[in-house]
Structure formats: C-alpha cells, structure tokens
C-alpha cells in the first residue's frame, strides 16, 4: 500500500515536470502550428542560467526565498530573450516556407544548443554533469509510517507552480485581449494581419512566454533530479512532446493531463510491470522472466506505444478538437 502511494507521488512529480515543458510546446504549436523541437534545449539553457545565478549568489543566499525567486526570474528572463532571438533569427524568415523547413530548423537549433553547450570554451560549461544547488532547502513535509512514504516540500511547491502556471496560461489565452490576438493568429495569421493584429509581435511574445516557461520548468526539474548536463533537454523535451500530443497538442489543460498521465504510466510500468511479468513467467514456466527480469526496460516502450495508440485511435489527442483538413 505504501509502495503504491510512493509510486503515485513519484509519478505525479515526474508528470508535473513533463506538464510544464509540454505547456511550452503546446502554446507555440497552438499559435504557429510549429513543433518547436528546440524547446527542451531552451529549458537546458535556462537550467544553466539558474546554475550560474545560484553560483553567484553563493551558498548562503541561494536558498533564501529571495535568492530562489531571483534564480527563477533571471533564468526565465534570460530564456525569454533567447526565445525571442531564436524566433527572430531562425523561424521568422521561414514562416512562409513549408512547415517541414521550420521543423528541420528547429531540430538544427536543438542540436546547436545541446552540442554547443558541451564545448568547454568561454561561458560554455562543457559536457561533464554538475549538481544543481539546493535552492529550495529540502524538508520532509509529510512522513507516513517509519519513513515508508515521504513527501518533500519541493514536490508540493513544484506541483502548485505547475497548476498555477496552467491556470495563468488558460486565463491569458481565453480572458485577455492578447489571448484573443493569439487565437486569431492561430486561426489564420494572414487574415489576422488584415484585421490589424500585430502578428509578428504576437508570435514573438508567444515564443518568449514559452521559453520563459521552459526555464521555470527546467529549474524545477533540476531541483528534482539534481544533475545538470547539456543533453538533459533532449530526453525531457521528447517526453513532454509525447505528453502534449497525447493530451491534444495546442490544448493547454490537455497538455497537463497528458503529462501527468504519462508520468504516472511510466512510474507504474517500472514499478509493477516487472512483478506482473515475473508472475506470468512463473505461471508459464518461462525462465527468461526470472528474478533478473525487470520492468524498467519497458518504460519508454510503453510511453511511445501509448503515443502510437493515441495517434491511431484519436489523432487529435484526448482533449484535442477535430479539425477538417483541406487536401
């Protein structure tokens, strides 16, 4: 029973991070119909910015409330700027080209960032992993039994931040003038431009917002999993993308739901698939499913299998709307 609760907490914590990254994917896709594959790497850059800021603050100040807020704000601002630059220099010139062109450019930017950060010259950090400083001092908030289940303060804080950001985005998109402009651009940016909507500015702002979100997500991720290295964005970005597609890409609550679903699925696959299959192996006398057999290897297979099923059965995602496609 305690196992189950602990797995549930682990899964929620993982899902929260996927959710925050997925929000960025979904927002950019919603407005531009562009899958910004560099999103995970922007997140990685944000984490390094946070790492540098925390380093400058020093051990004493980084874990105060003010210090932690500063780490978040500076890296979010830095990433917002990075997002602006990427959009201005890489995506805007290609906006009227075929969508595949932008997609490949996005992959190019992703590689430039993740492999560029492995260099060890100037401000670039080099390939070796670092430990992210403890900017939220860990406390055990809830302890069940004899340390059978432990809930830490940062897990709760991350979860709350994710929910708040989701609500904030939902309000921004559906309750503000700017949100209406975003939706108009999303519907048809040429017509939106004719209606006097500053399309360039709306798109630039969307990118900045998405990138700032990525930085925030990245820092929460770094607090959770501590190791910071230049390839960290690729993997999380991939998982968040899957989550966004499962939830229905372009749909804000869908991205969060998809992410949490994915986080929980992965957790339970690793936690219980081994037991289930070992049990099966014992019944069927299959030696290959012996004690050494683990469920861990099924994690990614299940995550991507889930994606394939969603794309086959409900390609618009769980929450997505069906849109007629002109052929």
């Amino acid at each position: 029973m305690n196992d189950l609760i602990q797995h549930l907490i682990n899964g929620l914590a993982a899902g929260t991070i996927y959710a925050l990254v997925a929000l960025g994917y979904t927002m950019v896709y919603g407005v531009l119909k562009l899958i910004n594959f560099a999103h995970g790497d922007v997140m990685m850059v944000g984490v390094y910015m946070g790492y540098a800021t925390a380093g400058h603050l020093g051990r004493e100040h980084q874990s105060t409330f003010l210090g932690a807020t500063l780490v978040f704000l500076l890296s979010m601002a830095g990433c917002g700027l990075l997002g602006f630059l990427i959009e201005r220099l890489a995506y805007r010139p290609l906006r009227d080209k075929s969508r595949l062109t932008s997609l490949i450019t996005a992959i190019g930017i992703s590689f430039t960032l993740s492999y560029g950060f492995q260099l060890d010259i100037g401000f670039l950090p080099g390939a070796s992993p670092r430990a992210f400083p403890e900017i939220i001092k860990p406390h055990e908030w809830i302890v069940i039994g004899d340390h059978d289940v432990i809930i830490w303060n940062w897990q709760v804080i991350s979860f709350l931040i994710a929910i708040l950001l989701m609500l904030g985005l939902q309000i921004l998109v559906f309750r503000t003038r700017f949100g209406r402009a975003m939706r108009a651009v999303s519907f048809d940016h040429r017509i939106a431009a004719l209606m006097g909507i500053p399309v360039d500015r709306v798109i630039a702002f969307t990118f900045m917002l998405g990138s700032a979100l990525a930085a925030g997500a990245g820092i929460l991720y770094a607090i959770k999993d501590t190791a910071v290295q230049p390839l960290m964005g690729l993997y999380v970005g991939l998982k968040a993308f899957v989550a966004a597609v499962i939830g229905g890409i372009g749909h804000v609550p869908g991205a969060v739901a998809g992410a949490i679903l994915l986080g929980l699925t992965e957790e339970f696959v690793v936690g219980y698939a081994g037991d289930v299959l070992r049990g099966l192996g014992a019944v069927l006398h299959l030696d290959s499913l012996g004690v050494g057999f683990t469920g861990s290897s099924w994690r990614d297979a299940v995550a991507f299998g889930f994606l394939i099923i969603v794309l086959l059965v409900r390609p618009e995602g769980i929450f997505g709307r069906v849109t007629a496609e002109k052929v």
């Binding site: 797995h7 682990n10 899964g11 914590a13 999993d225 960290m232 936690g271 683990t294 861990s296 990614d300």
Partner: peptide, 15 residues
C-alpha cells in the same frame, strides 16, 4: 532493477 544511461529519475526503481 534496471535503468538506462541518460535517465535522471530513478525513483520508480528505488521505490
């Protein structure tokens, strides 16, 4: 239990 190089979340296995 097993993990793969590149994983950062080992909590499921550790649980």
């Amino acid at each position: 239990e097993a993990y793969s190089k590149g994983d950062t979340d080992f909590r499921a296995q550790l649980t």
